[in-house]
Nucleic acid binder design. Structure first.
Lengths: 111, 111
DNA sequence: CGTGTAAGGAATTCTGACACG
DNA sequence: CGTGTAAGGAATTCTGACACG
């Protein structure tokens, strides 16, 4: 589970390929970064590197833009979505800790 | 299942990034292609594009080479592995067809 | 056989800016 | 605000070849 997801999040795709994959111009992709809609990493010599996750997000952004949604509105929507995900992740972690604690104190009763 | 796997197999990584990811020189990576150990795709203007699967295979190849295994021996090993996988895939497909046939004739007995 | 390197060219990517609206 | 474009430079990638062993 952690493993497959890592493919999705590794930043390894250069901007030209992202442009092909999304249909957006490089200019647009750089601009959306300026507006904080995406956060590519940089290779050693400063080239932008994107993940599949970024590509999918850019496709969503492109759809929104076609509907006339402004970049700052899209940013707000993305923040909301992220907040929900963070909450879900936190809840899972808390649940995980509870399970660990439970198992620890009950799995080997009276050794 | 098909979805996550597609990230692993999409050919989107350029040779410089593959070099960083594997620790191999570009020269080595191109040579292993010449010896048919990997098969990158080409972008519109001829640049090689690799998948995560290719990257993993290259790491395996690098390990074998360190042990002194020749490229033609590595090629044979890869072919064996592929044959096994193909057989497994075929068996799954056959099984799938059998299941479909079985379900089709028995799921709604006497309608 | 496997890998390094210099060679020359073509394509990629980067930044900052001007333009339009 | 969102995107196009020309500008100049730096880095990337490609191929074919010579070298060593």
């Amino acid at each position: 589970m952690e493993n497959e997801a890592s493919y999705k999040n590794r930043k390894v795709i250069s901007i030209g390929t992202v442009s092909e994959l999304t249909g957006l111009t490089e200019r647009q992709i750089r601009y959306y970064e300026e507006r904080k809609l995406i956060s590519p990493e940089r290779s050693d010599r400063g080239n932008r590197k994107y993940s599949f996750m970024d590509v999918e997000r850019l496709i969503e952004i492109a759809n929104k833009r076609e509907e006339g949604v402004r970049t700052d509105e899209i940013l707000q929507e993305l923040k909301k979505k992220k907040k929900k995900e963070d909450t879900a992740t936190r809840n899972k972690m808390i649940q995980g800790q509870l399970n660990a604690r439970f198992n620890h104190s009950n799995r080997h009763p009276k050794k």
